[in-house]
Design a binder for these strands. Sequence first.
DNA 1: TAGATTGTTAATCGATTAACAATC
DNA 2: TAGATTGTTAATCGATTAACAATC
Lengths: 207, 207
Amino acid sequence: MTDFKNPPDVIVGRLPLYLRALQQLAAQNCQVTSSQELAEHLGLSAAQIRKDLSQFGEFGKQGTGYPVQALSHRLKAILHVDRVWDIAVIGAGDVGHAIARYPGLANRGFRVAMIFDNDPAKVGGQIGPYTIQDSAQMIAIIRQAGIRVAMIAVPEAHAQAVADQLVEAGVRAILNYAPISLNVPPGVQVQYIDPVVPLQKMAYYLE
Amino acid sequence: MTDFKNPPDVIVGRLPLYLRALQQLAAQNCQVTSSQELAEHLGLSAAQIRKDLSQFGEFGKQGTGYPVQALSHRLKAILHVDRVWDIAVIGAGDVGHAIARYPGLANRGFRVAMIFDNDPAKVGGQIGPYTIQDSAQMIAIIRQAGIRVAMIAVPEAHAQAVADQLVEAGVRAILNYAPISLNVPPGVQVQYIDPVVPLQKMAYYLE
DNA sequence: TAGATTGTTAATCGATTAACAATC
DNA sequence: TAGATTGTTAATCGATTAACAATC
């Protein structure tokens, strides 16, 4: 009997990778997999995968491995992506456009629900099914909709101000595409996507 | 006298964050900073920052801190971004568009040099200053240009095949936007951007 | 000088790996 | 049954933190 309390953050961060690999296997009609197979697929060690999963329950069978569908469902529930989270996108530039039209969110627990911009020339315009809304109404609209997840795709100079407004509106998880560190109060999560960071890391290893 | 050999990968991965923070401080005309100030800015510990930097040299002065400009220059050199790396972008969909027009690469060591797509309807079209080139010529063109860095922005189903071609063309660093793990030979680096991964990680902590 | 902050050492902490009994 | 693979323990490995002498 394990405890299941406070799994390390680093392990939580790997669960989405396990889920992604499992869904890919499922799409190939694979019924069962093993820690070994997942490890090769993801470039990790089999021991690590077994250890990570054992933090959350006993999902496998000795001699057989893990049932792909069942484990996939369990991981979805653990990650709280067995539902659909509405996302507010802030910024209707190129990045906001790409996010709003990105097909990869579907079936993975998220959906873009609305998009905002502060440029009067953009407000009222369409991006696929979305009408770009005015940032001035952002706080009220997000609060009213009860949205908890947002993506920031505005220029660096505005990102912190937008983050402050999102927090005020009740957002609790922010994915920030602007290349700056955000200051948010405890209880609000931030993750970052800045393509230059991984590029520069790789450059270190290039001659 | 320290050794300066084989700094841990996890430290190399933080250097771009230090550089980004320093360049932001420089833009604010800040002359000098401290491990304390950088730590608050980045949400890390001051001890960690001093320890990390000490892997590469002695950049600070006791009692004073670190000179922002000088340290920034040193980190650029260490990361090999004191030059401009040409990037090949594969895939001229929404993500490829956003990358090709992303202003955040400038002054950070990279520039998009060319963009490819396999869709005849897109080949020959323009994205800003770039003419979309045919993927069929990709290997030859990239090899000819001596390009070492590429970004994959094609659908999941084609990403591995594209990666194989890039490796054949001489690319040694790949930033992959497709939500799959890539198989590449030793000596080729891969980093991943899948926005759903950080979103799912945050969802775990949402009620 | 006095105050501040580095670079570095030693201590702590946490994550990964190896190994294997349990068992399907 | 024999072979395979899990879940888990103990050992290893590595990263972070705390503390402080050195010194600007």
